Simulated assay, not measured.
Amino acid sequence: MKKVFWMLMMLTVTLGAAVAGDDKTPKGSEPGIQFTESSWKEVLKRAKAEKKVIFLDAYASWCGPCKLLQKKVFTQKEVGDYFNGKFINVKMDMEKGEGPALSQVYPLEAYPTLLFIDGNGRVLKKVIGYQSPENLLSIGKSVKASI
């Protein structure tokens, strides 16, 4: 009986650590794209001052492919390393907050829509739909090469 008790205790502790996501990565240093929380006006001002392109993930909370991008693509180290160094990254729920007004400026056909925008607010590239990490990197590199 004691063996069963100890086996159950060990199983509980092991599962508890797994469910809690017991990784040693400190908050804020996760790999992947780091998105700014700034207002759109501030993002445009920053892009102009730093002479950087804005990468805008225009999504909706109910969108399945948007959730996949967030979970499977934006979290990739290689994607984050490139995008964090080359772009000002913004994700915006286009149905909440500043999103509806922004969707008037940048009309959307579907979710997700990935926009590369210069500091003057001009769209340099528009990509619709889910992209693999490799495709997103390739698109980002082609945008950078074109400016």
Rank of each mutant, 00 (worst) to 15 (best):
N84F: 06
Y106W: 10
F116T: 00
K125Y: 06
L56W: 02
I54R: 00
F74D: 00
D93H: 07
S61Y: 13
I117V: 15
F55W: 00
T75Q: 07
E109F: 13
K72Q: 15
I128A: 08
C63G: 04
P65W: 01
A145K: 15
K48A: 13
L136W: 01
F74A: 01
Q131M: 13
G97P: 14
V90S: 01
Q104W: 05
S103T: 12
T75A: 05
K52V: 10
F55T: 00
I54W: 01
Y130W: 11
D81N: 14
D57C: 06
K125F: 06
K77P: 12
K144Y: 09
S146I: 08
F116M: 01
V143R: 05
I139G: 05
L115V: 06
V105L: 15
P112W: 01
S146R: 08
F87P: 02
L69D: 03
K71N: 14
K72I: 04
F116Y: 09
G80P: 10
F55M: 01
E134V: 12
Y111K: 05
Q104H: 13
T113V: 09
L102V: 08
V90T: 05
I139K: 06
V53R: 02
L56H: 02
A49Q: 14
S132V: 07
N89G: 07
V127R: 05
K96L: 13
V127T: 13
W62T: 07
K48T: 08
N135K: 15
P65V: 04
V73Q: 01
K144A: 12
E78C: 10
